[in-house]
């Protein structure tokens, strides 16, 4: 039998891998990929908690469904912004976006 803790551990690992990616990536698209990993970690948490806390309500699964939808919408807008910046600056590297610096 698989204890709940293992699911939470998996979710925490994904969260930390995503966080590592967010803190270290220079490429805006890879930053987005790391965010998706973090969101999937959160989804695993939600579905696992829902399953292990008794079968009377579907809160976790419903929330996970909505998170997938929201992640899709956010990715659409984010990638469109990346492309818009790329059109003007020909670069997707965050370090190059220094027009608004001190």
């Amino acid at each position: 039998m698989i204890p709940l803790g293992h699911y939470v551990l998996l979710s925490a690992f994904l969260f930390c891998v995503g966080l590592f990616g967010v803190l270290t990536q220079r490429n805006a698209i890879r930053f987005l990929i790391s965010i998706e990993i973090m969101l999937n970690g959160a989804n695993i948490n939600l579905v696992a908690f829902n399953r292990y806390f008794g079968a009377s309500d579907a809160t976790g699964q419903v929330f996970a469904l909505f998170v997938i939808g929201v992640a899709a919408a956010a990715s659409v807008v984010g990638l469109v912004l990346v492309i818009a910046v790329y059109r003007l600056r020909k670069s997707v590297f965050i370090d190059d976006f220094n027009l608004l610096k001190w």
């Binding site: 984010g78 990346v82 910046v85 976006f97 027009l99």
Partner: peptide, 19 residues
Amino acid sequence: IYSTEAGLKYFLFGALSTG
């Protein structure tokens, strides 16, 4: 250029914080 860069920066920070 400034507006699109602002939008992207807001997105990057914002996506992380809501995550």
